[in-house]
């Protein structure tokens, strides 16, 4: 891997949250929950004190996946559903970087569902923030994997989807994520705190953020009244975490699971040159 000189921690100026924002105006609708998630991410970066050049945010396609452009750190706006694969490659090739992945519920749980499972399993030290609004916004309002089965708001599924909604937290737990939490875009400080904890926790950290869509799911304005702080403390116990997730109505906020698995670490020793490797082919 490329050797990157260790960063001198002294003399590095402290950056405020606004220093992690770019001057691009988001394409999001006024009132979209994603504005507040952007603020949470930049606040978290400020708290973590990561220099801009040593952090990267990777996304796929969708409203929320536009987020890298609105930050001032390195970013990659890739293809639909593959943010976690791209982030995994970056982190394994460059373990010195702080790598965030971000996107929506369609990007992460539908087209990218397989990568979500395997990123949880692989447990690379990444933090994945899913802005879940239970709808496809960019394509103008179709049902997503987390949409309730009886939602009739889309022309594609006028009688509801008839399909069981995806349970992101329980799936993440079953697949092996090491840190699992839920936040709410109406509580940017709470989300920022979860992101800080997720980044600091080794391995794959998954944070579902209920981030309302004002345009296609206006009824989500009521989420503010429905969310509540989880009454439970975070647990490293899989069975207990699973029970709480399955019993939850999807509106409890906080850290559900704090795993103790070590993060995936690639070997880094260099003990041969290419010329030495070649010798195996000699007769």
């Amino acid at each position: 891997m490329t050797a990157i000189a260790a960063r001198a921690t002294e003399g590095v100026p402290h950056l405020e949250a606004r220093d992690y924002k770019s001057d691009y105006k988001p394409i999001w609708c006024p009132g979209c929950g994603d504005y507040s998630v952007l603020t949470s991410i930049t606040r978290a970066l400020s708290v973590l004190g990561v220099p801009r050049e040593e952090a990267a945010i990777i996304s796929g396609i969708g409203c929320s996946s536009r987020i890298p452009a609105y930050t001032s750190i390195y970013g990659f706006h890739g293809v639909h559903g593959r943010a976690l694969a791209l982030a995994t490659g970056l982190k394994i090739a460059r373990p010195d970087l702080t790598v965030l992945a971000a996107g929506g519920d369609g990007d992460g749980f539908s087209i990218g569902g397989n990568h979500f499972l395997h990123a949880c399993r692989r447990n690379v030290d990444l933090t994945y923030i899913v802005m879940d609004n239970q709808v496809y916004g960019m394509t103008k309002g179709q049902a997503s994997p987390t949409t309730a089965s009886e939602w009739e708001g889309s022309k594609l599924t006028p009688h509801g989807t008839g399909v069981s909604p995806f349970q992101p937290l329980a799936v993440a737990l079953a697949a092996g994520a090491n840190f699992i939490a839920r936040g709410f875009s109406g509580d940017p400080n709470g989300v920022a705190k979860l992101i800080v904890e997720g980044v600091r926790h080794p391995g794959f950290s998954f944070i579902q953020v209920l981030s309302r869509c004002v345009t296609y799911r206006p009824e989500q304005v009521d989420w503010r009244k429905m969310v509540r702080k989880s009454e439970h403390e975070p647990t490293p116990n899989l069975a207990r975490a699973a029970k709480r997730m399955m019993a939850d109505d999807g509106f409890s906020l906080g850290v559900f699971y704090l795993g103790e698995r070590p993060a995936y670490l690639p070997p880094t020793a260099t003990d041969k040159t290419v010329a030495e490797v070649e010798k195996q082919f000699e007769l």
Partner: peptide, 11 residues
């Protein structure tokens, strides 16, 4: 996509 990430990282 992983190798695009690795290459973006300079490797």
């Amino acid at each position: 996509n992983m190798i695009i990430g690795g290459s973006f990282g300079g490797v």
